[in-house]
Amino acid sequence: MTQPQKQHRHFILHKPYGYLSQFITDARKKKLLGELYPFPEGTMAIGRLDQDSEGLLLLTTDGKMSEFVRGRKVEKEYYAQVDGLITPEALARLQQGGLSIAHEKQMYQTLPCKVRALEPAPDFPERSRRVRDDRHGPTSWVAITLTEGKNRQVRKMTAAVGFPTLRLIRVRIGDIYLAEMAPGEVREVEAFALSTPTDSVLEQPV
């Protein structure tokens, strides 16, 4: 007898600052995703945002969907607030790829990506912990679109060109946008609407 196909569930979350992108941990006094919503058993985060990062996080009970979203055919866009006024030269270096960043005890060369300065600065709600006082110098914002997903990659990339990231927010995965979701807000959806780039520099062989 044919077994009925399992009905998977999918969620969109605005991960707040200070939460781990997981449901269990050995660390004490850590905020976990299960505190934000009664996710069903078997739910997994698709690609993690580190504790200090914010923004769009997809969750699913479908392992195949998780593997597809984490792959290099789906764009992930981040807004990074960096220390200092980022220069055209730094933007070009980020975009052209070839930056050496540490990954799993080795050096990794980044791929070409989409990069642009954000002017004016995006209007996000104040973070639960302030980035810093304006008296410590100017900051600027940059949008970076990747199909890679190395650990803390955006932070390592901006640091490599001399502009450390102070605040990092993922705003898009494929065709799914963070939009007006409030920090901590969760939406259940029937399916993820995701497309792959067709005319992008990100299509270069990897």
Rank of each mutant, 00 (worst) to 15 (best):
T139L: 04
V154E: 00
G63A: 05
A45I: 02
L20F: 10
P112C: 13
T110Q: 02
G97S: 14
V115C: 09
G18E: 01
P122N: 06
E126R: 14
E148L: 09
G174A: 03
F192P: 09
Y37W: 10
H10S: 04
E203L: 11
K15L: 08
F192R: 04
L194G: 13
G162I: 03
Q96T: 10
C113I: 11
G97A: 15
D175M: 14
H103V: 11
G34A: 03
Q106V: 04
A90Q: 08
R48M: 01
D83V: 01
L111T: 07
Y108P: 04
F11W: 06
D123Y: 01
G98S: 11
M181T: 04
R135E: 09
D123V: 11
L91H: 06
Y78S: 00
P38D: 13
Q96A: 12
L36R: 01
Q109Y: 15
L91Y: 06
L36Y: 06
L49E: 03
V171W: 10
R130L: 12
D134W: 11
T110L: 13
S21D: 08
V74D: 12
G184C: 09
L49G: 01
V142Q: 04
T60G: 14
K30Q: 05
P164S: 06
K29Q: 12
E185S: 14
L202A: 03
A90G: 06
Y108K: 12
Q204E: 12
R152M: 03
E41R: 15
I173V: 06
C113E: 08
M181R: 15
